[in-house]
Design a protein around this nucleic acid. Sequence first.
DNA 1: GACCAGGCACATC
DNA 2: GATGTGCATGGT
Length: 217
Amino acid sequence: MQRFIKKKPCIKEIFDALFSFYGPQYWWPGDTPFEIAVGAILTQNTNWSNVEKAINNLKNSKALSARALHNMPLEKIALLIRPAGYFNVKAKRLKTFVDFLVNSYGGSMKRMKKDDVMSLRKKLLGVHGIGHETADSILLYALDMPVFVIDAYTKRVLSRHGILHYNASYDEYQNLFHEELDEDIMVFNEFHALFVKVGKEYCRPKPRCEDCPLRPF
DNA sequence: GACCAGGCACATC
DNA sequence: GATGTGCATGGT
């Protein structure tokens, strides 16, 4: 099977083009690793501004901690995160993640960070409601681990530039970045944020390619 | 009113 | 392995 539509993927060139056009994005918005992990679950298929409202509700109710959420009834969590959408589903996912954090690491993200990257990734993927993107977002943005995050924008941008087929697997997309880039947390962090930035402006389902900074590709 | 958003699990073929 | 569906709020 032919992996690439183009012969040579120009991953670094894409990063340079986006970074020089937009500059650093300083992701991820969040005060603590735990808040970032919660945000990663709440933002599943959801606009970030809605997630902020939900996180503020959790903060105002002093519920933004592993212990608080661990002891809180599902219905109350659902009520607090309502603005983030899919609130019944996400309440369960949040609870399941927090239970995992409490049972495996005593509720401490710091202790979770001491785990080996790949074995932690496997464990996270085993948590119900945590898929590839959410797991990798937690690893990269909450725990500073060198894992590249693939999301819908990344796939849309790369496939529209003929670099990889849209339907290629998550691992195929991720391998592309892991093979082409040095293992640099700051680059992984900025690059994914830049994909979201350029994706929001130019690479929606209905693309606006005229003024896109990636037009030369 | 239609479209979209920083997914995931599950059913079915 | 591929495809379709449910989950839901809020901004443009």
